[in-house]
């Protein structure tokens, strides 16, 4: 199982990357952590003419607190983020979620930017990005733009990145006072892609759920927010959410895949179990 041939360029700057895209268009592929790209290459499922290795571009691997946001460089490795004090203090959701991502040797190499750009519907990080209200910072030869996570994941392994654009950083709003982060997923084995997963960010006030963003993975062709579920729970007293309304909201917003092992209905059921766990967690956290 060997990849098809390709050329290779180690980019020293973003300008190098833009130049390769200029020359090769969609025949060029960015190599970051490579933990999804390389298996696809090895299996000959992907055949770029050239790999642009961005691993040595300086300044893409920083984690910085900038006012109300944490800016996470796209090249930050999963394991670096998981162990970062800044992340632990301001984006605890990511710490929780990253423990579920694959295995240590994969997390040592895999990058946050790579995972987000891969937009695997079963991956944890896109759901986190949605729940956190992350802004994607994108650069290209013609300048930079900022894309809200909710506009970034547009389909099955598909993002709104335009040809020639490179994701350089994510800006995550810091968790405010009283903000509760919840992550859980149902996976058959440690580190597996989940049958269903949920990232939730909640704000409570005076015993009521003020706002909750629920983002699901493995429950559609991409990671999905459930606005109907948010509408059901927002404004409700903690612990008083109607189960039937939850299930109806999930059914309305999610469209889980149906495969030979796990049915769409089961994934929907598991999403409901996760929502109940999340609400229980939010309830207990809000009480304390």
């Amino acid at each position: 199982m060997k990849p098809r041939t390709f050329d290779y360029l180690r980019a020293k700057t973003l300008a190098d990357v833009f130049a390769v895209f200029e020359a090769h268009g969609d025949e060029a592929l960015i190599l970051a952590g490579g933990q999804s790209v390389v298996p696809a290459l090895n299996m000959r499922l992907s055949e770029p003419a050239i790999l642009v290795d961005i691993n040595r571009i300086p300044e893409l691997d920083r984690i910085e607190l900038q006012g109300g946001v944490v800016r996470i460089g796209a090249l930050c490795r999963h394991e670096t983020v998981r162990r970062s004090d800044v992340i632990a203090g301001h984006v605890p959701l990511l710490v929780q979620a990253l423990a579920h991502v694959a295995h240590p040797a994969i997390r040592n190499r895999g990058t946050l930017g790579g995972s987000l750009c891969n937009a695997d519907p079963a991956a944890e990080l896109p759901a986190c990005a949605l729940a956190l209200g992350t802004t994607m910072v994108v650069e290209s030869a013609s300048g930079s733009r900022r894309i809200p996570a909710s506009d970034f994941f547009i389909g099955f392994y598909e993002t709104s990145l335009e040809p020639g654009e490179v994701l350089v950083a994510m800006e995550v709003p810091v968790a405010g006072n009283g903000e509760i982060h919840f992550f859980d997923e149902i996976a058959r084995r440690q580190g597996d892609f989940a049958l269903a997963g949920l990232a939730a960010v909640a704000k409570c006030d005076g015993g009521r759920l003020v706002s909750v963003r629920f983002a699901f993975h493995s429950c559609g062709d991409r990671s999905l927010l459930s606005p109907q579920l948010s509408a059901v729970v927002e404004g409700m007293p903690n612990g008083a959410v109607d189960g039937a309304a939850i299930d109806a909201a999930l059914k309305g917003d999610l469209d889980p895949p149906d495969d030979a092992v796990t049915s769409s209905e089961t994934r929907l059921h598991l999403a409901g179990v996760l929502v109940r766990r999340a609400l229980a967690h939010i309830n207990s956290e809000a009480d304390t």
Binding site: R188, V261, T262, H269
Partner: peptide, 14 residues
């Protein structure tokens, strides 16, 4: 599998 167990338990119709 979880699918078969949930189905047996009637938690999903499957």
């Amino acid at each position: 599998t979880p699918e078969k167990i949930l189905r047996a338990l009637g938690r999903v119709s499957g």
